[in-house]
């Protein structure tokens, strides 16, 4: 038995339908919405602002602080307990590390940029959606960035290399691997690489190659979201 046809009939390198918008939360300094299939992420960015507790202040540069949270009703029926969990803390941390290589906070010593992520609906790939949305929101907030970060999961389902796995594929009853990847746009540097499951060395190389073109598609959506917000303002 091989996985020749994807559960939602996508091509192997096809991503779920994506949708993005910048500036969805007027009270925030920058914000974004990003959707990939049934996974939706809202991100609000506040700052640079004064950092408390004070002992965390760094006199050389500003701090990036991410806060990832799935909403209680967001999953597939199981209620997710609000508040932080081991998993949410880990994802918050990998988000910070995925975004930091492009963000330049040296102009804002002792300050903090807060990134809040809420996921009202989830169907696998939440950390990727969160990172892609956060990159839009940070750009919208006017934070100095050397490049954009785009994120998508790649992987292998029963021997077939696929991009942007859905929850059905992640839990497919066979050997599956799910590899969330985040990349910079210009240099294609990997800023996030995690894996769940099993994959052969050859397939991993192939999957990471597929991630390059997959993140490029995410980048196009991010760019369009940012440009349309401000060109509408320019035309209105």
């Amino acid at each position: 038995m091989t996985y020749s046809k994807r559960l939602d009939e996508r091509k192997n390198d096809e991503l779920r339908p994506m949708d993005a918008k910048a500036g969805v939360i007027p009270n925030a300094d920058g914000s974004a919405y990003f959707r990939a299939g049934k996974t939706t992420a809202y991100v609000a960015v506040y700052g640079p602002r004064e950092l408390f507790p004070k002992f965390k202040q760094d006199p050389k540069k500003g701090l990036l602080r991410c806060h990832y949270a799935m909403m209680p009703f967001s999953g597939s029926g199981e209620r997710i307990r609000p508040g932080t969990s081991r998993r949410a803390q880990e994802i918050s941390m990998v988000m910070e590390q995925a975004l930091l290589p492009v963000i330049d906070l040296s102009e804002f010593p002792n300050s903090v940029v807060d990134v809040f992520v809420q996921l009202p609906q989830t169907d696998a790939g939440t950390r990727c959606a969160a990172i892609s949305a956060a990159a839009i929101a940070l750009a919208d907030a006017g934070i100095p960035m050397k490049d954009m970060i785009s994120s998508v999961a790649v992987g292998q389902v029963d021997g077939t290399i696929v991009a942007d796995l859905s929850y059905g594929e992640e839990s497919y009853p066979a050997v599956v691997s799910d590899i969330p990847v985040a990349m910079t746009h210009n240099t294609k540097q990997i800023t996030l690489l995690q894996m769940d499951g099993e994959i052969s060395k050859e397939d991993l190389v192939k999957a990471l190659d597929a991630a390059k073109s997959a993140t490029e598609k995410v980048y196009d959506v991010q760019m369009k979201a940012l440009k349309s917000k401000f060109s509408v303002e320019n035309k209105k």
Partner: peptide, 8 residues
């Protein structure tokens, strides 16, 4: 022209 971070 409007540009986003990282554009050449």
């Amino acid at each position: 022209e409007i540009v986003i971070p990282g554009e050449i």
